[in-house]
Design a protein around this nucleic acid. Sequence first.
DNA 1: AAATGTAATTATGAATTCATTATTCAGTCA
DNA 2: TGACTGAATAATGAATTCATAATTACATTT
Lengths: 219, 219
Amino acid sequence: MNLTESIKRPTLHEELVERLRNLVVEDALKPGEKVPEKDLCASFGVSRTPLREALKVLASEGLVVLQANRGARVTEVTPEELENTFPVIATLEQLAGELACERLDDAGIAHIEERHKDMIAAYKTRDRQAYFQANQDIHNALITAAQNEVLESHHRMLAVRVRRARFMVNLSDKRWAQAIDEHEQMMEKLRRRDAKGLGELMKLHMLNKFVAHMKALQT
Amino acid sequence: MNLTESIKRPTLHEELVERLRNLVVEDALKPGEKVPEKDLCASFGVSRTPLREALKVLASEGLVVLQANRGARVTEVTPEELENTFPVIATLEQLAGELACERLDDAGIAHIEERHKDMIAAYKTRDRQAYFQANQDIHNALITAAQNEVLESHHRMLAVRVRRARFMVNLSDKRWAQAIDEHEQMMEKLRRRDAKGLGELMKLHMLNKFVAHMKALQT
DNA sequence: AAATGTAATTATGAATTCATTATTCAGTCA
DNA sequence: TGACTGAATAATGAATTCATAATTACATTT
């Protein structure tokens, strides 16, 4: 079978969750900003019902907060929020690193190696856009390699929240170089399939990223 | 200020999320079971709108699955699901243990000590109900003590999913004794404020619980 | 002018209605 | 008998409507 692509027509509310989430992550909807249903309905061309359903989901993901009878607001990215989020991501990435090492086959490692090279190339040409993309691909690949749906979904939820912080800070040259170095070390552990080592490095990598973010925010 | 309790009048959909979640956790709604909106609306005395909003939230928490045009089903508790969930909970509890050690004051530790004694008492009289309750209280207290909202909310989501498994297996005498022993060790680490030690024990405790569950399921 | 009270407007929560998609079941034909 | 067709029924997705709470604008009082 499978002659054609399986027909997937997502429901409106699913579509809206996606679109709204992107708006929040891409910073089109600013933190603290009110999200008037009416306007969103108009711009998406849907009625309030599916939109409100979508907002409920976003709220349970922590991207917006709902106040009864007072509508939705995009959650603020506060230092406290980052302070709480990073350790949790870090510990999840540690677990992911360990599992990925055990479950990745040679082809999988080769694939990550490719993206790693892309990332290095982007670093050398100082192409921030390409760097962020390759970086994210690598992390996502490692998460996927862990083959744990629960881990993956919770990691995604948290990663989304942190990704918004990207718009707030500039990656310093020093931190950028450090991050590249950490990735080199991670690749080394991965090649040797050192599960514990990779896990620890990934955790540390996240916590260092956190420190860099906090420093940047304090200025 | 704060002269009176802040007035909280939850919206219907919030109330429904709570109630429905309980129904799933308490196993009143069985895994795999269809959840006809109509019946639920009738039994709760609400219209479909808030109920459907609640189902969307439950779906994003992974307690139900929504199939377009075919309604909601309670998610099955499969061995795969447990296999994926336990390691994630374990790693979160490890983090919680470490943070709790750093942040609990003497009064907080004393409070946990109390619940620990309750748990031991329940064990001696083989009062499963009281045991489960005290056990859960202890874990929750440690999570709360970590003072990390993100950690807490994600842990709660996962704990709910696992708690359902309780209805599927019987706690063996052997495992029960082992669990008590593990808790004794955890308390010892906590008294000494050995953050790393408590974290490792809590992780191990969860993984052992997982092994016990899997053994029980295989029979 | 500042503060308080009140009416008008707006936005939200929830119920209802409408439109589509599944499901059921009787009937037909091989 | 058993597989297929299609009408009837039921359930769901989405739009609309209604009710209520919040906000705003304005007036009144001091």
